[in-house]
Every structure is written in C-alpha cells, then in structure tokens.
C-alpha cells in the first residue's frame, strides 16, 4: 500500500514541447484516482512518469516518502496495465502472469501458488495453459490484470485499459476492476479519456487539459461544481449547457430582460446549467424552443434554443415532449457561474 506524492512534476520533451506543466498532488493510501482529459492533455505522460517509463524533467516524485525519480520501473513496486494489454504473445497465460515473479528470483512453487491464486481471483483458472491469441478481449484484459495483482504491488497504474473492449464488456470490466481494487485496497492511478469511467470508478478525479490540472475533486464535486468551463463541458454527457448571460439587480439575466435565477454581482458571465437541472412547466417563466427530440428509452434529450443560444434539456421518459415552443424553469441552486474571459468558476 502506498501514498504517492507529486511535487511540481514537469515534463518537457527533447523537442521543447511541454507535455506536463509543473503539477502537484498527493494520493492517499488505498485511493483510486482517475486522471481524465482529452487526448494530448498529458495524462498518459504523467502516468508514465510515475511508472518510470518517462524521465521526469523537473520536480520530485515520491512513493511512500521515498523519492523515486531515478529508480528503475522494476524497483518502484508498481504494476501497470496497458491499453493493448502488452501480453507476451509466445507465453502461456501462466507464464505471462508469473514472468514478473520469475525475474525477481521467487522460487517456482511459490510462483505457481501465487499464479493460481491470481487466476482464481480473475476467473482465469481454466485458461492458464492458453496463449494470449486464444483468448477473447475480456480474458486478455484479465490476464493483464492478473500480471499486475500477482506481484502484490504498492501501486497499480492503468493506462486506458478498457478502450479496446466493446461497450458491454467495458461496462462489466469497469465494475470488476473497481471491485478488485476495493478488495485489495491497493492505491491506484487510472488514466482514461472516458468521462463515464472517470465518474463511476474514481474516489477522486483529476481533470487535465493541455498539461495543466483543471480540477481535483470527488466525482460529485467535479460534476456539480466544475472549476472551469472546460471541466463543465468535458464531464457529463450531454455536457453542461454554457450560455452567455449577465448579472444585474441580483438576478441572472439572459436576452436582456429574462431573469433566470437569483445571484449577486454585476457584469457579463458564462452561465452553466446541467441538462437535467431544468424542469418543464406550462406556467414556467422561461421560453424554450425545442428543435429536436432525442429518444433514449430511459430518458429524452431535448435540443433547442434558449435566448437564441444552443441548449439541451434532459427529461425523464414520463415527460412528453414534442418539437416547438415550451416553457422551462431552472431548479434552485443549480446555476454555475464562470468568468467569460478566463472560463474559471466565479
């Protein structure tokens, strides 16, 4: 088990590109932290620096209060699960799982018992003598997990481990990984670009953009109180509605004269409203024009115009909806205000 501490970690590639700006955060013992962000945001680079697969340009990385900047990946007491599994194609599942132990000069009978234990935990016992090419995607994924758990490391690193699986399997493996991590209580860092994975799996989410941390928080904090318009639009599907508005007379005004909700301050703002924080009433105060109704079974998405700006509303399946004019109300305390210049939350 381990605490991990990143202190002003920075990565500049040989060509001068700064992939990660100085970044600091701490991960508590047993915590499941998800690094999420769009491609090229530096999340994988950050993970690979923790793993020791990339050099750290500046800053201090410690695992359990031991500075590991220049420690070999094999000696950091970590295990990593790769996006394409990186199984050794010529080795059986048994050998794949046991290879890390074998290199650490652990006696063969002990390796065998540890491999058996890991295989049992991951339902791989029947497949131990197969080669990776004879396994399905989900099974390969499990072997990759087995290779990680068998070593009983202090820290798990996951680099987009589910992105090669189909949607159904991804859903299932998401739960399995989370359950396994809970059971073993191993500190984990998980990199993904999928905000659903981030929301569902994380104890804490770190949202990255262009090599910077946009926000660190629990899934609920990230979702309900995004620190910037970037986080607001990246997390959640459909994303938070962001519209231009103005503060005046203790109210949020759009379209010059429609008051949406009470708020203090003056001047132009960007207003963020989650699609599900809106109710449809015939006698509600705000005009909304529905252009398209997206039927999703359990709920409906209404895409339309609010004060001539694109706006999406999420309603339950019991709310009837047809294109055309309707009236809406914003649920209380559901408005996020952002600075229109910097995009930061106010």
């Amino acid at each position: 088990m381990a605490q991990v501490s990143l202190n002003n970690i920075r990565k500049i590639y040989a060509n001068g590109y700064e992939a990660v700006t100085p970044t600091s955060f701490d991960i508590a013992d047993g915590e499941f932290v998800v690094l999420v962000g769009p491609s090229g945001c530096g999340k994988s680079t950050l993970l690979r620096m923790v793993a020791g697969l990339e050099d750290i340009t500046e800053g201090v990385l410690s695992i359990n209060d031991r500075q590991v900047n220049h420690v070999d990946p094999a000696d950091r007491d970590i295990a990593m699960v790769f996006q394409n599994y990186a199984l050794y194609p010529h080795m059986t599942v048994r050998k794949n799982i046991g290879y890390g132990l074998k290199n650490r000069k652990i006696p063969a009978d002990m390796i065998e018992s540890k491999v058996q234990e890991a295989a049992k935990m991951l339902n791989l016992t029947d497949y131990l003598d197969r080669k990776p090419s004879q396994l399905s995607g989900g099974q390969r994924q499990r072997v990759a997990m087995g290779r990680a758990v068998v070593r009983d490391p202090a820290l798990f690193l996951f680099d987009e481990p589910l992105s090669n699986l189909d949607a159904k399997l991804r859903h299932q493996m998401r739960i399995e990984i989370k359950a396994l991590q809970r059971r073993l209580g191993v500190t984990s860092i998980y990199v993904t670009h999928d905000q659903v994975e981030a929301m569902t799996m994380a104890d804490r989410i770190i949202v990255l953009n262009e090599g910077r941390i946009e926000q660190i928080g629990t899934p609920a904090e990230i979702y309900h109180a995004p620190a910037s318009t970037f986080v607001a639009s990246f997390m959640g599907a459909p994303p938070m509605n962001l519209i231009d508005a103005r503060l005046a007379d203790g109210q949020i005004m759009i379209n010059g004269n429609t008051a949406l909700a009470p708020a203090q301050g003056t001047g132009a703002i960007t207003l963020g409203i989650r699609p599900e924080d809106v109710e449809i009433h015939d006698d509600a105060p705000i005009h909304f024009h529905v252009d398209i109704v997206e039927e999703l079974g359990a709920h409906r998405l209404l895409h339309g115009q609010l004060a001539d700006q694109d706006f999406t509303i999420h309603v339950g399946k019991d709310v009837a909806a047809t294109p055309g004019a309707t009236r809406i109300a914003i649920k209380p305390d559901c408005c996020c205000l952002f600075d229109p210049e910097t995009g930061k939350a106010l």
């Binding site: 793993a51 020791g52 094999a74 790769f82 394409n84 990186a86 890390g100 290199n103 650490r104």
Partner: peptide, 14 residues
C-alpha cells in the same frame, strides 16, 4: 514489435 511489450517487460523486471 509493440513498444508496450518493452515497457511491460521493464516493469516486470526484465
């Protein structure tokens, strides 16, 4: 040969 194999091997202590 995929890069990840090298990396996995490095982490496996090879």
């Amino acid at each position: 040969v995929p890069e990840e194999l090298v990396e996995a091997a490095r982490i496996d202590g090879a």
